[in-house]
Amino acid sequence: MIPFLDLKAQYLSIKDEIDTAVLKVLESTQFVLGNEVTAFEQDFADYCNADDGIAVNTGTSALHLALLAAGIGAGDEVITVPFTFVATAAAICYTGAKPVFVDIDPVSYTIDVTQIEKAITERTKAILPVHLYGQPADMEPILEIARRHGLTVIEDAAQAHGAEYKGQKVGAIGDIGCFSFYPGKNLGAYGEGGMIVTNNPEYAHTMRMLRDWGQERKYHHVLKGYNYRMDGIQGAILRVKLRYLEEWTEGRRAHAAKYDALIKDSSLTVPTVMPYSRHVYHVYAIRSPQRDELQQKLNEQGIQTGIHYPIPVHLQPAYADLGYKPGDFPHSELAAREVLSLPMFAELTPAQINIVAENLQNIVRGVAV
C-alpha cells in the first residue's frame, strides 16, 4: 500500500531530536506558551522574513485573530475564494463579517485577480487570498487593488510554508499572514497549531492580547479575547521540524518534477507552476473528468489519494445563507469535480512514485491492472 501521507516515516527520521525536545518541555513544566513557543515564534518569523510571529492553537484561530486585528467586524465584507478549506470562510463569519467570493483562476487555482475589483463594495474591508496547494496567489495585483481601495490584505498561507512569490516568502507580503501546523501540513505539529506573521507592531500587539484572553499582562484584560494559545510541546516540536523544512520542501519539489515527467503525456492535467511562484506542493493535485473512477481504481491497487476539495464553500449547506447558487463560480465548481491529490510527502520514494504513475497511465489508457 502506498499511503497518501506517512507521518510515522517523518517522525522516525528525527525521533531523537523530537523526543529530547518534548522531554525538555515536560521537565520545564512550561506547558502553555513558554520559552519554546517564544523561540519558535522568532524562528518562524525569521524564516518568513517577518518582524513578528504570534503562535496560536490552530490555523483557523490565526485567521480569526488576523481579521479582528485588522478591525473586521459585523457588517463588513471580506473578499476570498470558494475553492478552499472551509476555515477560510468560517473565520470571516466568526467576526460577524460576510465572505464575498471571487472565482479562482483555472490554471493556478488561486484567486482570479481580474475579478476582485468588481466584487468590492462600500462594505469591503479586506482581501483574503488563499495560497492553495502550496502555490502563492498573484500578490502584486492584489496589493495594488488593496492600496487603491484602502483594504487590508490577509494571506491564508495554511498550505504554503516556504512558498515564494517573486523570491519573497509568503506570509509577510500582505499585511498579515496566517499559517496552519495541522499534522499533515508541510510543517506539521503533533496535534494542532497555527502562526500569524506581520510587520505591523500594532497588529502584533493586538493579536498577542487576543490569543490570551485579551490580557496585556496577567489579569489585566484590555480586550475581549480568546484562549488561542499554543502548547509548549507543540512549540518545541515545530522548532525542531522547522530546521528540516527546506530539505523536506526540496524533496516535495523533486517528487513533483518526477510526477510531471512520468504523467505529462497522458490526458491528465498536472499542476502548473506560475512564473512568479516557488510551489511547495502541500498536495500534488492532478485533474481529470474521470476523477472518481481514477480514485476508485487507484484505491483498488493500494494507492491512497485525496480530494481537495469536493464541494466549494459556496455550495456547502452551512453557507447557504450567503445566497450563492450552482454556476456562480464555474472554475471553482469544475475544479472541485476534477481534482485528485496523489501521494505527496518528503519521504516518498522514487519507486512509489513510479508505481503511482504507472497505475495512473494504465487506468487512463483503459488497460486492466
Rank of each mutant, 00 (worst) to 15 (best):
C93A: 14
V78G: 02
T58Q: 00
C93I: 04
V25T: 06
T29H: 07
N35Y: 04
F40E: 00
N35S: 14
L68Q: 06
V32Q: 11
K24Y: 02
T58R: 07
V78Y: 02
A70E: 05
A45I: 07
V86T: 12
G59M: 08
Y94T: 02
G59A: 04
V22W: 05
G59D: 05
Q30R: 03
T60I: 11
F83R: 05
V86C: 10
G53K: 04
G73M: 06
V22R: 06
N49T: 12
A97L: 01
A39M: 08
A45C: 03
I72S: 06
G34C: 03
A69G: 12
K24V: 00
G34N: 07
L68N: 01
G73I: 06
H64M: 00
G73S: 14
T80D: 00
A50Q: 03
A70S: 11
E77M: 10
K24T: 02
L67V: 11
A39L: 13
E41A: 13
V32M: 14
A90F: 13
L68K: 05
K24H: 09
T84L: 12
G96N: 09
E77Q: 09
L65W: 03
L26T: 11
D43I: 08
F31G: 09
V86A: 12
E77F: 08
D52P: 04
F44E: 13
L68G: 02
I72N: 07
C48I: 08
A55C: 09
D43E: 15
G75D: 09
S28T: 00
A69L: 05
D51G: 13
F85D: 14
V56P: 11
V22S: 05
D76E: 08
L67Y: 08
I92L: 07
V32R: 15
A62E: 04
E77N: 06
F40R: 02
G59S: 04
N49W: 10
I72L: 08
F85S: 14
N35W: 01
L65K: 09
G34L: 07
L26M: 12
D51W: 03
G59K: 06
T84Y: 05
L23D: 13
